[in-house]
């Protein structure tokens, strides 16, 4: 068994380890925009650096080596996205931080208000619905919500994924 990665794979491992540092760096540059945009910028930067490494590294590249490196980069990006999205858009985590920031015990209603920073659960619902409406999965008419054909297809896909991953 050969435990040593190829040159491109070694570059990909190094870049994967540096990815969180790159995101930390971009967080200090105001022009990089919000969290989502900054993450996408980080992914593009990583791919560009990998392409540069593949060209600049001495010796001839093997297809398997380059492909393996791309898989490793993809793995790192998905892992970082899962953690990053939990921090940025995690519902349960934000509930906890809102309660701690309040600095005193709260009733359910007070907690909801603290979570929405003065807003209400309607604001939160509209924010989440905007995602579904923007993606063309749900439409609103006369104060009622209805799924589009695309929304129904996505819902069936979600059920299939839930079934095949053992979530039922």
């Amino acid at each position: 068994m050969n435990l040593l990665p190829g040159p491109a794979q070694a570059a990909a491992i190094g870049l994967s380890l540096a990815f969180p540092l790159l995101l930390l760096l971009y967080a200090r540059i105001a022009a990089t925009g919000g969290a989502g945009r900054r993450f996408r910028l980080g992914c593009v930067s990583l791919l560009i650096l990998y392409a540069v490494a593949c060209i600049a590294l001495p010796g001839q590249r093997q297809v398997g080596d380059v492909l393996g490196g791309l898989f490793l980069l993809g793995t790192a990006m998905m892992l970082c996205y899962i953690l990053f999205s939990l921090l940025a858009w995690g519902f349960t985590l934000t509930l906890l931080t809102a309660l701690v920031q309040a600095g005193r015990p709260l009733t359910l209603e007070q907690w909801a208000t603290a979570y929405m920073q003065g807003g209400d659960l309607g604001t939160f619902t509209h924010n989440r619905l905007k995602l579904l409406i923007g993606a063309g999965m749900v439409v609103t008419a006369d104060g009622r919500l209805a799924p589009t054909t695309k929304g129904v297809a996505v819902a069936h896909l979600v059920k299939l994924v839930r079934l095949s991953t053992g979530l039922g």
């Binding site: 995101l23 930390l24 971009y26 967080a27 200090r28 925009g33 919000g34 969290a35 989502g36 945009r37 900054r38 990053f84 921090l87 940025a88 858009w89 995690g90 519902f91 985590l93 934000t94 931080t97 809102a98 920031q101 920073q117 604001t123 939160f124 924010n127 989440r128 905007k130 995602l131 923007g134």
Partner: peptide
Amino acid sequence: RRAFGIGDTSLYDFSE
């Protein structure tokens, strides 16, 4: 969150 420049609302920012 502070280190990664992430806000603490958990709301999606559609202006990006």
